[in-house]
Every structure is written in C-alpha cells, then in structure tokens.
Amino acid sequence: MRLEWIDDILAVLDGGSLTRAAEKRLLTQSAFTRRIRLIENSVGATLFDRRRKPVSLMPGIQSLEPELRELSTRLHKLRHVLKTANDQTGKSLSFVCQHALTTTISPRIVQTLTENDDISIHVRSGNQDECLLNLISKQVDFAIMYSVPGDEISSIGDAFEAKTLGTDTLIPVCAPSVRNKITSAALPVIGYPPDVFLGQVFARKIAPRLPKETTLVTRAETALTLAMQQYAMNGIGVAWLPHSLVAASLATGQLQRADSTLPSQELTIRMVRFAVAQSEYCEQIWQSFDALPLDFATLHY
C-alpha cells in the first residue's frame, strides 16, 4: 500500500466525494478516478461504493479511518526522517519530469549538477498531474514541466512558483511513407488521450487551426511520447511531438516534419516548486538555475 494511495483514500473521507478529493489532491477528476481504479486493482478489493451518488467509501473502509490516519502520519514522518538522515550524510536532490522531458532535459540537468558537486540526484517521470502531486506530497524537490506560453500561471495555480528554463515546439512529424498522405482529406494520426497535458494542448491550440477540409482518422492513441514516436516511425500516422524529442529522428530521416502544412505549437519548459519553505541546499539549487551553463533560453538539438 503506497503512501499516496492512503492519502487519496483520506482525501475522499475528508471531502465526501471523488470530485472534492480530486480538488484537494490537485488532480483532474479523470486522473483521480484512474488512481482510484489502480488502488482497487492493486489491493484486490472494492473500496468505493459506486451505487451511491456521490461515490463514497465502502462502510468497512470508513471504519478504518483511525488506522489510515495514523499510518499516513507515521509514514510521512518516516519519509522525513529518512530524507533528513540522507541529507546529513551527503547532498541529495529529487525532481520529477513530464515523460518527454525525462528523456530530453533531465540528462542535461543531471550532468551539469553532478559535474562540480558531490550530489545524488533522484529522477521520476509522470504526467503533469502526477508531477504536481509529487511536489505537494514532498516526494520531490522540483518538477520540470511544459506549459503553453501565456497560460503559465493558470496551469499550476497559486500554490507553486516557477521559472522558465527554455522553449520547445510541438510539431507534426511522420514517416516518409506517410508524408504524401498529409494533403488528403482523411489524415491518419496518432493521438493523445484528451485528459493528458499534450492532449489538451492539441485540442485547444492545434485542432482549431487544422485545414478546414481535413478529417482526422485516429489510428492509435497513447499518452507516452516515446511510444508515439515509434508509432510514427513505423508509418502508422502523423504525430505531434516535442521537437526536442524527435530531433535525432529528423536528422536521420526516419521522421519528416509536416509543419509546412499542419499547425505546430510553441511550448515553455519550466522548473516548478511548491511554494513553501525550502531547505538551504534546495534553495541554492533553485537560485543556481539562473546561472547554469546551459543554453536553456532556446533549445538546440
């Protein structure tokens, strides 16, 4: 039983519904619902009574509230003690990245931070909701995430603060065998689920700018950008992927750009932290990103 799962259950107890619990955990309702299904599948038991509206915990689970709260408190305390003990023996830092950025940005950050400092760095990967939840639960010190220019504040809320590291572009790419199909009315595409960040970017910023005569035919759907890149190289359809991720495939000719006829979208790369008091070392790292010898202002690949 993972600590965040216990906190999810307690959030439902405190909020009285999945909707309020999702708000407390700073997750979309669909993302929180997926988490609930994962918890039930993992423990092999039904925890929530879906016959009632709003959905609530089963009576037997509600009776375990004292034990769940005690366990949550003890595990949070243990995590803090372990982290403190580690900090006393050596410098450590943890951060989480949106999936695509784990591949493209995190290696450069880890390389730079470890070159001139005796530091142990722990890197996680997740979607945007999971990144923010990791910050709130203090499982990580920082998060590296995408945002849409002009929408930076509303995308994370007042509980966080952020600084810009650089820019990227979500561009349409495809295998050479698919390139001649782009002008057809029925465009084969590899899509994102609508509840993930890049899926929302596509729906709000790209889809409205597609040629009016174009009809999208979704051949496959995935939230994993690395999988989508492979699908595109296999000729399944057109995919909108971060330029930083596909630059090498473009250079070798495995993929071709299609943004001469299809729209693209600029993205901002930001470093985010929870707006609470930080350790002295984490504060030093945060401030050091203003002077890191990395060309994050405009990414070149």
Rank of each mutant, 00 (worst) to 15 (best):
M1V: 02
I6C: 01
L13W: 00
D14S: 04
G15N: 03
G16S: 05
R20T: 00
R25K: 10
L26F: 04
L27G: 03
S30F: 01
R34L: 09
I36F: 00
R37L: 03
L38Q: 09
I39C: 01
V43F: 02
L47P: 05
L57G: 07
I61Q: 07
E65I: 08
P66E: 06
E70M: 10
E70C: 03
T84M: 14
A85Q: 15
T89K: 14
K91P: 03
F95G: 02
V96K: 02
T103Y: 15
S106G: 12
V123A: 14
G126D: 14
N127R: 12
Q128N: 14
N134A: 15
K138Y: 09
K138G: 04
Q139F: 03
D141C: 08
F142K: 04
Y146N: 07
P149G: 10
I153D: 15
S155E: 14
I156N: 07
F160Q: 05
E161I: 13
T164W: 04
L165F: 06
D168G: 05
D168Y: 01
P172S: 07
C174R: 09
V178Y: 03
K181V: 06
T183K: 09
A185Y: 05
V196L: 05
Q200S: 05
A203F: 01
R204E: 07
V217F: 04
R219G: 11
A220F: 11
M228Q: 13
A232W: 01
N234E: 12
N234I: 01
I236A: 08
L241W: 03
P242F: 08
S244M: 10
Q254N: 14
L255Q: 13
D259A: 09
S260W: 06
S264K: 08
I269S: 03
M271I: 14
F274M: 10
A277M: 08
C282A: 13
E283V: 00
I285T: 11
L294Q: 10
A297S: 14
L299H: 07
Y301W: 11
